[in-house]
């Protein structure tokens, strides 16, 4: 009898938990959609996705991190700081409708040149390295600005793609850690050659 009572009590407790969970699930959409503003999450996700939507963008941004890692401090953080800021300036130009000729070619050349710098392990003065990275960042940013999807939240879109861009640089820096070993230096230079080859392939596709 006592056992039955305990079984019944345990069953009731389980039933109550299930009912509570069902209630939470039932209420969830109401809480989630009770926002005065809409489209923010979509804007953020569009921003996160945009920089990784094209291999030409991805390779160039990772190459910035790789080159920074090869050059060491302060380039390891200065180049990845320069790129997003100047890219945002380019994005602003794109948003304002300022025409920039040869954006697609500029993006492709960024991959070719940055890949070559990694391949050659080129060590220019810091200012020149930042200028090269910044120059190409304008083209990438302009493309982002022009392609801002209609209706997307500009702010959350911007946050999303700045975060993704920074993360891609961080991936490059992370890979670049292998530069401390002899085989790692060779591997980095080989990856630079691969980036340049990919850039040449993209160029051929555009010109063909």
């Amino acid at each position: 009898m006592i056992g039955d009572h305990r079984t019944h009590a345990a069953f009731s407790a389980r039933a109550m938990i299930r009912a509570a969970l069902a209630m939470v699930v039932a209420l969830w959409p109401v809480l989630a959609w009770a926002h005065a503003e809409q489209g923010r999450a979509a804007g953020f996700l569009a921003g996160v996705h945009h920089p990784i939507s094209g291999l030409d963008h991805v390779l160039a941004m990772i190459s910035v991190g790789l080159w920074g890692a090869q050059l060491g401090a302060p380039a390891i953080w200065l180049l990845p700081v320069t790129f997003p800021v100047v890219m945002a300036m380019g994005g602003m130009l794109g948003l304002l409708g300022v025409h920039l000729p040869g954006v697609e070619i500029g993006i492709i050349f960024s991959g070719i040149v940055l890949g070559l710098t990694v391949f050659a392990e080129w060590r220019p003065p810091m200012g020149l390295a930042a200028a090269i990275v910044g120059c190409f960042a304008v083209f990438h940013g302009h493309a982002h600005g022009v392609e801002l999807p209609a209706g997307a939240s500009g702010l959350t879109y911007s946050i999303g793609f700045v975060m993704t861009t920074g993360t891609l640089h961080a991936v490059g820096i992370g890979i670049g850690v292998i530069h401390r070993w002899g085989w790692g230096r060779l591997a980095l230079r080989a990856s630079g050659a691969c980036v340049t080859t990919a850039g040449l392939f993209f160029l051929w596709k555009v010109l063909a």
Binding site: P84, A88, G91, L95, L96, G154
Partner: peptide, 23 residues
């Protein structure tokens, strides 16, 4: 340096927001 990088990201977001607002 990581904090300063975060600052640069905020600058970048601000520039884009400015462009978006002006547009």
């Amino acid at each position: 340096i990581a904090v300063r990088v975060a600052g640069s990201w905020i600058v970048a977001v601000g520039l884009l927001l400015l462009g978006w607002s002006l547009r």
